[in-house]
Design a protein around this nucleic acid. Structure first.
Lengths: 303, 303
DNA sequence: AAGCATTGTGAAACAAATTCATAATATTCA
DNA sequence: TGAATATTATGAATTTGTTTCACAATGCTT
């Protein structure tokens, strides 16, 4: 059982254009006989005559005209699709869905994406919230294409490209007694309210790098979504927070805060872009990572 | 070299709907293996991965989604086309392009077509002017589907179905001397201006049935397109005309005209519907002819 | 009516899609 | 983690569909 196929649409269009089987056949690189068989094929299948047969230069019948109209509407759609695929192959277009484990990174990432969109207008860019946890498996299964993370995992078959180093620092109101100290020790937080983003402890530098190793628990924990709100709460001395130095630096003009290193010599963390191995070298992926690094440098200078 | 085919569109849609090769295969009455080969086929052809392969219930990739979108747009168009063909096959739809050799028939045909359009809304109805001459060859080559004619030709392989008989009569102003006569002889027109439709003499009853056999030429001939204008000119005694009795009857309430038979016993002509032999029995063709006869009967009663 | 241009046809050759059987791989659950 | 289960992949054989070749048939032109 033969159905209408693209071949038939191309054939009917070619016959109409050239006004004859033989010429159409030439245009399609086939024999005239093939086209004759082909037409007979669909006519038998759909049960209507596509051409007026009494006339010699074959002429479209009413049904044939309907088919031609369909061809004229459908074939360009397919051509457009193939052009899109062409873009995917040549690397001009693609998808760049990003997950950020580092909660504060949102503000840094936005200008990066803005620049990226200008350079790669055909790439479909998005930040996927909600999968900050389990981002690496999602990366592997192609739910997303890039993860901003500070925990490179050997196991995950992904490339971790370093973006920039930062220092998690303690941010406290200048009214807070801790403002007196030159640096902060874990014990200093026993009687403090710690304000964090609403994510697991294992994703928070304050715990993974500082409190948990020292087995110290703060007096209270308060979870807040927005960086701006955290800063407000700290300013009014309702708690202290651990944030990347560059976040702090961007608000330091405000005298209500003080920033202090964690431990005597401070802690240094490194942020990575995790990508699937086969993607890392793709032009627009590499470009996004480059832009991200540049933005990081610019950001460090703000201080 | 394999191209994108409808089969691929149906496949990707089915896989998306059912969420798996095996289930999609069942829906399409194929084996899972066939689908696996099939998608491998297009992927090789278009050069992009349509599915994320690391995951087990196969999931569409960015390119796959584009293909799915195309499928969702294209497949309904094809379905609609096939439905149209279905209509053509079942005889509910079709084309009914009509040529009228008989110039006066226009007014009689219009109400017929009005009724016909209501009964067969899916049939594409039209009156094709301009090919009043050579209408029978056009019928044979399927340029048109029905010819209203009063000259059945044996040669033309067409069916001539009688519609109704009429009598061409002479129409003259009541001021005209001919109004005194009980019937008209060819010689009576020697000193008259004859008003006719602008077509060849061989298509005018006045010549073919009356003047030409008698080798009589009127004093002058004036050609006018519209029946209403002919009537007006006759009323103001600017000439005489030969028109079918039923045309005359429709205006006879107007005392300015008189109608007189041609020759002592009058001339009788018969109008036919010519159709291609293979079409004559098609339901909507037969119906149109029936409607035409009915309208003719109704029209004769007006007098 | 003859000649030319065009379309149609059947058999053979060719190309492609599908199946069968089974392997490989991912996911789930204990 | 490993066994069980579900899902997809693969190769060879088979089936199905398409194209070609050679020539027949038909319509068109003069």
């Amino acid at each position: 059982m033969m159905r209408i196929e693209f071949r038939h649409l191309r054939t009917i269009q070619a016959i109409h254009e050239t006004g004859g089987l033989a010429r159409a056949a030439e245009q399609l690189n086939m024999t005239q006989s093939a086209l004759s068989h082909q037409i007979k094929g669909i006519e038998d299948q759909v049960g209507v005559a596509l051409f007026a047969r009494r006339t010699k230069p074959l002429k479209l019948s009413a049904a044939g005209i309907k088919l031609l109209r369909a061809a004229e509407s459908i074939l360009p759609q397919v051509a457009a699709l193939e052009a899109e695929f062409e873009g995917l192959i040549s690397g001009k277009s693609g998808r760049m869905h990003i997950a950020i484990e580092c909660h504060a990174c949102f503000e840094w990432l936005l200008p990066v994406l803005e620049a990226f969109r200008k350079a790669w207008p055909e790439v479909d860019v998005d930040i996927r919230p909600g999968l900050a946890f389990d981002a690496l498996p999602a990366l592997r299964r192609e739910d997303i294409d890039l993860v901003v993370s500070s925990d490179p995992e050997e196991a995950a078959q992904a490339d971790f490209t370093p973006l920039f180093d930062y220092e998690p620092v303690l941010l406290a109101s200048s009214q807070n007694p801790l403002a007196e100290k030159a640096f902060i020790s874990p014990d200093d937080l026993r009687d403090q309210t710690l304000i964090t983003y609403p994510v697991e402890r294992t994703r928070l530098d304050a715990f993974t790098e500082f409190l948990t190793p020292a087995k110290v628990e703060p007096a209270a924990i308060r979870q807040v979504e927005l960086t701006a709100v955290i800063l407000m709460l700290v300013a009014s001395n309702r708690g202290v927070a651990v944030l990347p130095d560059w976040v702090v630096r961007q608000v330091q003009y405000n005298a209500d805060y003080v920033a202090r290193p964690l431990t005597q010599h401070g802690i240094t963390r490194r942020l990575y872009a995790a990508t699937r191995h086969e993607d890392t070298q793709r032009p627009f992926v590499a470009h996004l990572i480059r832009l991200a690094k540049q933005e990081a440098v610019r950001m460090q200078r703000v201080g």
